[in-house]
Simulated scan of single mutants.
Amino acid sequence: MNSDYIPMDTVTFMDEVLRFYDSHGTAEERIRANYMNGCVYRDRGDSPMALEYYLKAVNLADTTEKTCDHELLSRIYGQMAELFHKQRYPQKELEMWNNAIAMARKANDTLMVMQSMMRISGVYWLEGKKGKAAEFSRETYKFCKKMGADSLAARELATTIAYNLEHNNLDDAKREIDEYVSKSRLADKHGNMAEGSEFFYSYLGEYYLKSHNTDSALYYYRKLISYDEDIMNLENGYKGLMEVYGNL
């Protein structure tokens, strides 16, 4: 269920499973059982209990042992990072992503390393360290390109696009926007963004507003607010429209 992204909130037997493995299981089985119990609480929306079981899981691990499942540990740290992200606790989120990267490197899991690195620039941005966010994002972009992951590299450009737009580096922003659209695999041939990536319309709106292309700016800000299930889309869309009309 967990591997197939099926919510586990209806599972009622994990406490019993955990008690069994705590008494009779190997260290790896106890780690996995605590992890699974944490996932059940995660899907129930109980972050404190989920974190408690995730922490129990990683504390059971001896990372110096050759048999240590570093790949699993990287996933657990990633889950904790996600929970701290939802709680807007960037310091702990950053710590967990760094732990996830360290474990993924030991497991030779390059994809997990890249995916974890891609989350760190957003943490710095949330902390208000936008210059550091852009710097780290550029390093992540280079690493993804080196590994041949061109689509992931293109997705990482979102942070530097935002930074360049904020600093009115419009030529750099446009170059990165074009690469994001053409290589991220998040835009179809008509320029429509994939579900969950609609925030990119705000970057397009801002670029066209600052390029004095009012019609295109209005188009993308109006497109953004049509995805009203996300309050951030509404906030960014209406804010953009106010700026457009304020400059008319």
Rank of each mutant, 00 (worst) to 15 (best):
D150W: 02
E166R: 15
A162F: 08
S151E: 10
L186D: 08
Y141S: 07
R185Q: 15
D178Q: 07
I120H: 09
R119P: 02
Y180R: 03
A149E: 15
G128L: 01
S151W: 08
A187G: 04
L111N: 05
N164Q: 03
R119I: 01
S151Y: 11
D171E: 13
E176Q: 13
K129I: 00
N108M: 14
L111A: 06
K130G: 05
K142L: 15
K145T: 13
S121K: 01
D188Q: 03
S184T: 11
S137D: 12
E179P: 11
N108P: 08
V113F: 01
N169L: 07
M114P: 04
E156S: 15
F143Q: 10
E139N: 15
K142E: 15
V181Q: 00
R119D: 09
D172V: 02
T140Q: 03
A194Q: 05
K174I: 00
E195Y: 12
T110W: 00
G131I: 06
G128W: 00
K130R: 08
N108Q: 15
D171A: 07
R155I: 06
A158Y: 02
A187S: 13
M193E: 04
L111Y: 03
V181A: 00
M114Q: 11
E135P: 01
A158M: 03
A173M: 08
Y163C: 08
F136C: 10
M114R: 06
I161Y: 09
Y124F: 03
S182Y: 11
F136W: 13
E156Y: 10
V181K: 02
D109A: 03
E139A: 12
Y141M: 06
S184K: 04
S151A: 10
D109F: 06
Q115Y: 05
S116D: 01
I120R: 04
V113S: 02
I120W: 06
S137P: 09
D188P: 10
E135G: 01
V123H: 04
A133M: 05
L186M: 14
K132R: 13
K146L: 06
F136M: 12
A149W: 14
M117E: 04
T160R: 12
N108G: 07
L170H: 05
Q115S: 08
K132E: 14
L165G: 02
G122K: 00
Y163R: 10
I177K: 12
K142Y: 13
G148M: 08
V123M: 05
Y124E: 02
V113G: 02
H190S: 09
E179M: 11
M147S: 15
C144S: 09
A194C: 02
F143W: 11
V123R: 03
K132S: 13
R138E: 14
D171T: 07
G191I: 06
R155C: 12
I120A: 07
K183H: 09
M112R: 15
L165H: 01
